[in-house]
């Protein structure tokens, strides 16, 4: 057998257009750049974070923004012992539903923790900001246990 030349070419699947994120998501993402978290008040009074553009029940356009806290409570979580290459953390970590202080609906993000035993439902967590926020959901680098030295 002689060596076979394998033809290969990098292929990146992408849609090379840009679009505005609009007045609701755009405001949320811009606030992240300033290390603030804004939710939106739904017609039933609940504060939803990240904000939704339209009311989940009435479909009315929503525009009452509410700044919420940067700490919250773990409502559910799972432990990723083998992170995938695409995941935001490459050490074992948790995905979680986190209800921020002042919010009524949880959000999904990741938690950096030393091991599975360190976490439990109801645990208090706080935001760890990215070093250089840019107006993107990943400006929240992850959450970490509140009251635990990093």
């Amino acid at each position: 057998m002689t060596d076979v030349d394998v033809l290969s070419e990098a292929f990146e699947l992408g849609f090379t257009y840009t679009r505005s994120t609009g007045p609701v998501m755009g405001r949320f993402l811009t606030a992240l750049r300033d290390k603030r978290i804004e939710g939106i008040r739904a017609s039933d009074g609940r504060v939803i974070v990240p904000p939704m553009e339209y009311d989940p029940e009435t479909a009315a356009a929503l525009d009452e923004f509410v700044e919420v806290g940067q700490e919250g409570e773990v409502m559910s979580w799972c432990w990723v012992s083998e992170p995938r290459r695409a995941h935001p953390l490459q050490q074992p970590f948790a995905w979680a539903m986190i209800k921020l202080d002042g919010a009524d609906v949880a959000m999904i993000h990741c938690i950096a923790a030393t091991d599975e035993a360190a976490l439990h439902t109801g645990a208090r967590v706080k935001v760890r900001w990215a070093d250089e926020p840019r107006g993107h959901i990943s400006d929240i680098a992850c959450f970490e246990l509140a009251g635990v030295a990093p």
């Binding site: 990240p50 559910s76 995905w95 539903m97 999904i108 993107h136 959901i137």
Partner: peptide
């Protein structure tokens, strides 16, 4: 596409969050 897809949160993990809610 703005809040979750950029985090690459996978379907198995989401199902695990659901299972935990039921167990809890």
């Amino acid at each position: 596409p703005y809040y979750l897809a950029p985090l690459w949160v996978d379907t198995v993990s989401l199902a695990a969050l659901q299972a935990r809610l039921m167990l809890d």
